[in-house]
Amino acid sequence: MTENSLDTAGRSAAADQVSGARAAASASGEVGAAVVDGPSTVAQPPSGGGRAPRPTLGRRAAALADSLWRPALVLVAFFVAWWFVAAREYVPNYLVPTPGQVWTTMTDQWSELARHTMVTLYETVLGFVLAAALGLATAVAIAYSRTLDKALYPIVLFAQVIPKIAIAPLLVVWFGLGLTPKIILAVLIAFFPVVISGVAGLRSTDPELLDLSATMGAGPWRTFRKIRFPNALPHLMAGLKVAVTLAVVGAVVGEFVGASEGLGYVLLLANGNLDAPLLFADLILMSAIGIVLFVLVEIAEALLIPWHASRRAGVSLTTS
């Protein structure tokens, strides 16, 4: 019935609409294109190359500033509160040092702290990269093969359920006090979100696109490279952002259990000596590693999938 009424209603309007658009189409392609779609065309400047304006660098910076001033304000408030409490010694300084004391410690012992930071950074990055590679490979295997899905998925899940921190001592027994157990722990912790997001991304491919690719005679590798992998990237990048922060945890926990260098080792040392300023400086450096790596993954995301970022409103530091 709806079709019926639509037809009769459309028919009278059709005559002038069609002839009007015809004339326009013959005038010039661009104008024609704009007229042809009538009311449903996205508002676009006819001379703008048909493209909605992308955010310029200045606008992006403004958006970034807009998204950052609120957390910055909270952070400043936190520092002021900290400074106030510590300087007035509401809490004794051996428990909560002043920001100044932490700063002095950091600058005085900078060469030592820098060396330990580099060790932890190295473990984290290597662990993250390995986790990303292994996680992606596992995700591809799971997404492509039903058999491997059934065989691997429960094991991946099981491995995730085991408290990784509880394995740390075992890893030290097996691999000694060197870097290996820390890297393995970072891999184990960061692996899971990569697999889950990778599988979700690869499975989110529009089935019609896969049908289409079959009629294009493309092999599985081409379909993966041109369609499935780029389609999975937004999911995958979200997983990588989680993974990179978890990799820091893995490396530090590995250092807790048995190490002679690294920020985790320094933390234990400082704790044992009741050296609160060193402890705080150490914590700040650990967080800095996490934040820097997270931002690097964000930048990689913006470069890899600008089409996805452009769909989001503004610049955001959260996972999409």
Partner: peptide, 18 residues
């Protein structure tokens, strides 16, 4: 098909007809 001028537009920037 009258897509001239829209060669570089991403799908979400195009109307359904386009």
């Amino acid at each position: 098909t009258g897509l001239t001028g829209f060669e570089k537009a991403l799908p979400h920037e195009l109307s359904g007809g386009m």
